[in-house]
């Protein structure tokens, strides 16, 4: 096991930031820590990294207790902070070299690692640039390069895509998957459910310092009653037909606004085929049809009664 956190409790005065938070992460996973802002994700990461004191609980990394002076453990950890943490006066190359040098003493080896990191994040054309000359996306990439240049076994990324344009975000996410393919275990915190769904093999959903649910995205979606949502564009649907649709198997609700029919289903298979068969049987012609599977937001909504970004 790469990370084993048991019953972590952390208080800021009267505020309970982590409430018996537990976490187990296996080698080779891309593990997502998903929760709204203020849910305790960064606090959990800072406790795991031994930056923050905590009131109760145990933390082990690579099977050893994590302490501030556990340098052999720290040697194998890479951290990408939520806030960009680079020196403004150093160039891209110098920044990566500086942080890599805190882990790797051998200069020749370090030079190779720095080059690899620059290529990995695609900053070859910007190696002599200083951070203030870089765009937000490029700056985030530099931030990542500084955290991963020494090829750590465990990489912790704390909301690395905040305030990043979609193109750079995709590039960052692809890079994270590449790091995982190269053998690194990834811990990824975010409040963007799409990102977590896209790259994480296992996810913990947390709120108010508590673990709400843990599992693969399929397992998490399977935990909720709400299933897929079907949308059909059509005209002339009568009230008795709408009632009939509401009585179809697995349908939990249906609305019609004169042009669009929206049907909510709870699990079950072939819901869309069943609905379209009914509409054809009623000789109703329809336009575009959408079927949306449940999202992690639906999971969060059902568990907490609020949206992830509330």
């Amino acid at each position: 096991m790469v990370i084993n956190v048991q019953n972590l409790v952390k208080r800021y005065g009267n505020l309970l930031a982590l409430d018996h938070f537990s976490l187990q992460i296996e080698e080779g996973e891309v593990f997502g820590l998903l929760g709204p802002n203020g849910s305790g994700k960064t606090t959990a990461i800072n406790c795991i990294l031994s930056l923050l004191k905590y009131d109760k609980g145990t933390i082990e990394i690579f099977g050893k207790p994590m302490r501030p002076d556990a340098y052999s453990i720290k040697q194998d950890i890479g951290i990408v902070m939520q806030n960009v943490a680079v020196f403004q006066e150093l160039s891209v190359q110098e920044n990566i070299d500086y942080f890599c040098g805190l882990y790797v003493k051998d200069r020749q080896k370090r030079r190779e690692l720095v080059e690899e990191a620059i290529e990995f994040v695609g900053l070859q054309d910007f190696r002599k640039f200083h951070p203030k000359k870089l765009s937000g996306g490029l700056l985030r990439r530099l931030n990542i390069a500084c955290g991963i240049a020494h090829k750590p076994r465990l990489i912790i990324l704390d909301e690395p895509t905040v305030a990043v344009d979609p193109q750079s975000r995709n590039s960052i996410l692809e890079g994270i998957l590449k790091l995982n393919q190269q053998g690194a275990t990834i811990v990824y915190t975010s409040h963007y459910m799409e990102e977590v769904e896209q790259i994480c093999s296992r996810i913990v959903i947390m709120d108010k310092g508590k673990t709400l649910a843990t599992g693969t995205k399929e397992q998490l979606k399977g935990m909720i009653k709400g299933g897929e949502t079907l949308t059909v564009e059509l005209f002339g649907l009568k009230e008795e037909q709408l009632e009939a649709i509401r009585r179809l198997p697995h349908v939990t609700g249906a609305e019609y606004d004169g042009t669009r029919l929206t049907v909510h289903c709870s699990g079950g298979a072939h819901n869309l085929i069943r609905l379209l068969d009914y509409l054809r049987g009623q000789e109703l012609s329809f336009g575009r049809v959408y079927a949306e599977p449940p999202t992690l937001n639906d999971v969060f909504l059902e568990i907490t009664g609020k949206h992830l970004r509330d």
Binding site: L49, S50, L51, K74, V84, A85, V86
Partner: peptide, 17 residues
């Protein structure tokens, strides 16, 4: 100092005394 700057955090998690 990690409680003052992000750079402090990054340097504090490195295996440097």
């Amino acid at each position: 100092q990690p409680n003052v700057s992000a750079l402090g955090s990054r340097r504090s998690v490195a295996p440097t005394h």
